[in-house]
Design a protein around this nucleic acid. Structure first.
Length: 490
RNA sequence: GGUCUCGUGGCCGAGCGGUUAGGCAGAGGUCUGCAAAACCUUGUACAGCGGUUCGAUUCCGCUCGAGACCUCCA
């Protein structure tokens, strides 16, 4: 299975066979959050996408070092501002320390990711903890002659780079076109060329986050941290560099330039980019009023939401689309997902109770191969999920004695189903939180016992009344051949 | 304006040069005291117009529409 994985590499714009640099290990770097605001839907997509990839690579037997940074230095707001970075801006607004803001939002990011069952990366380095490493790269690039100083700031010389290396290998941009289309912005007079980007910025007096450097008291340029930290923890060349498509240009393109000069090569063998999220067909943006925090989803507190959607609903919804497609959030679509997910989860419980037969009517091996085939084809989770629903059909049919599985097949199905649903897709059961304890179990047994007696006496009034009242408490009662079953609805 | 992506049945969302994606919703049926659940059956979908082809939703061109990046953003 390990040999069949194919991934779409943005660098070649093609699907390529995945061959790790080291046969047993994979190094993966993913651009993490800028911690200056509440975690929102936009954070969920890359986290879940690369969590899936992380989980699947581990499942295939790779030892994965997954590095995802925390940007706590803050990027430049834009080239036009006076060098104030985002985190400093927010800090003054709220009258607290910049690091306090970064810590607060780092924590809330982690909290939301935990709810979404996103595994923590192997290393989560902070930009502010790697200023020295970033300054080293600036020095290397200066020494190599691909950067110049201008008024205390250091800029990368893109034009020179383009002459000796090819600029735009990742994004497909052509330098001349880029220059021709650059808008005239303030504060660009320091640059020789509008396409040049900052490696080090001199801090203006009001800029709070600042470090001493040979060039000025200032802060690192906004592409540098990823080059520095990926190199420190993963080396000159590692397997996967990931992030959202919006980072493709100029962020990742600039990273390639920096690494090429400082470390002699494009840092990553495979560049993987997840697509974006839209809400009701529109890009999610703060100005559009459709910017929804994850907490608002979980609580249903945003005005666009008809109800609360659980973390697992969000996760499953994202996984039902391929990571390279945009995914559109709407109440209707989320509620459809919610029902489908509930069927899947019910089936996982049914599966544990199934009884084996001496013959099989279903081909479990074929289903298993189909699931691996889907995942090996550039992590095609929608296809995988389609096959999981095929498994659901089998599970329910076996329960109804309309299909049969041998002991071996049943065990295989359990193993395959649980592996893909829980280990690889990273779903988890949510009902446990609101769930049962011994007292409830006992009470329910008692109540359903009384109802069973009423049913025996054909006292439908009593039995229906018990069921209706339980329904009102969100307890669902189903009569089956083996007696009544109950479950708590979310 | 430049670069690029996409346009699939009521909704979401895969895929492919000729054969059922899947989920949700709808219709019919089986089961059931009823209900729920489950299972079975059911949908002549591939933006429009041309072209290539024995055959295109799938390839090419154009048109229309949507979106992304180019500017902080995942």
């Amino acid at each position: 299975m390990k040999d069949n994985l194919v991934v779409f590499n943005t660098l070649s714009r093609k699907k390529e066979a995945f061959k790790s640099i080291n046969p047993h290990r994979v190094g993966m770097y993913v651009c993490g959050p800028t911690v200056y605001g509440d975690p929102h839907l936009g954070h969920a997509r890359p986290s879940i996408t690369f969590d899936l990839i992380f989980r699947y690579l581990e499942h295939l037997g790779y030892k994965v070092r997954y590095v995802r940074n925390v940007t706590d230095v803050g990027h430049l707001e834009n080239d036009a501002d006076e060098g104030e970075d985002k985190i400093a801006k927010k800090a003054r607004l709220e009258q607290i320390e910049p690091m306090e803001v970064a810590q607060y939002y780092t924590d809330s990011y982690h909290f939301a990711m935990d709810k979404l069952n996103v595994k923590r990366p192997s290393i989560e380095p902070r930009a502010s903890g790697h200023i020295i490493e970033q300054m080293e790269i600036v020095e290397q690039i200066l020494e190599a002659g691909y950067a110049y100083e201008s008024n205390g700031s250091i800029y990368f010389d893109v034009e020179k780079y383009d002459k000796n290396y090819k600029y735009g290998v990742l994004s497909g941009r052509v330098l001349e076109e880029l220059i021709a289309n650059t808008r005239t912005l303030d504060g660009q007079d320091e640059k020789r060329n509008p396409a040049d980007f900052a490696l080090w910025k001199k801090a203006s007096p009001e800029h709070i986050m600042r470090w001493k450097s040979p060039w000025s008291v200032g802060f690192p340029g906004w592409h540098l941290e990823c080059s520095a930290m990926s190199h420190k923890y993963l080396g000159d060349e590692f397997d996967i560099h990931g992030g959202g498509m919006d980072l493709l240009f100029p962020h990742h393109e600039s990273e390639i330039c920096q690494s090429q000069i400082a470390h002699g090569q494009n840092p990553a063998k495979y560049w993987i980019h997840n697509n974006m999220i839209t809400v009701n067909g529109q890009k999610m943006g703060k100005s559009l009023g459709n910017f929804i925090n994850l907490e608002e989803f979980f609580e249903g507190s945003h005005k666009l939401l008809e109800k609360a959607y659980s973390p697992m609903t969000i996760r499953f919804f994202i996984l039902q689309a391929h990571y390279r497609s945009t995914v559109d959030f709407s109440n209707e679509a989320l509620q459809a997902t919610e029902r489908g997910l509930s069927r899947l989860m019910q089936a996982s419980e049914t599966l544990e109770k199934l009884k084996a037969s001496d013959k099989s009517t279903e081909n479990v091996q074929e289903l298993k191969s189909a699931m691996y085939e889907a995942m090996n084809d550039d992590f095609n989770t929608p296809i995988l999920i389609a096959h999981l629903f095929e498994a659901v059909r089998i599970i329910n049919s076996v329960k109804d004695n309309k299909a049969y599985l041998t002991e071996t097949d049943l065990n295989e199905l359990k193993s395959v189903f649980n592996t893909f649903v829980f280990d690889i897709l990273g779903m988890k059961k949510e009902s446990d939180e609101s769930g049962s304890n011994q007292i409830t179990e006992g009470l329910m047994e008692l109540i359903l016992d009384i109802r069973a007696k009423a049913k025996e006496n054909k006292d439908w009034t009593t039995s229906d009344s018990i069921r209706n009242k339980l329904n009102q408490l969100n307890i669902n009662v189903k009569d089956t051949k083996d007696g009544a079953e109950w479950s708590i609805e979310n």
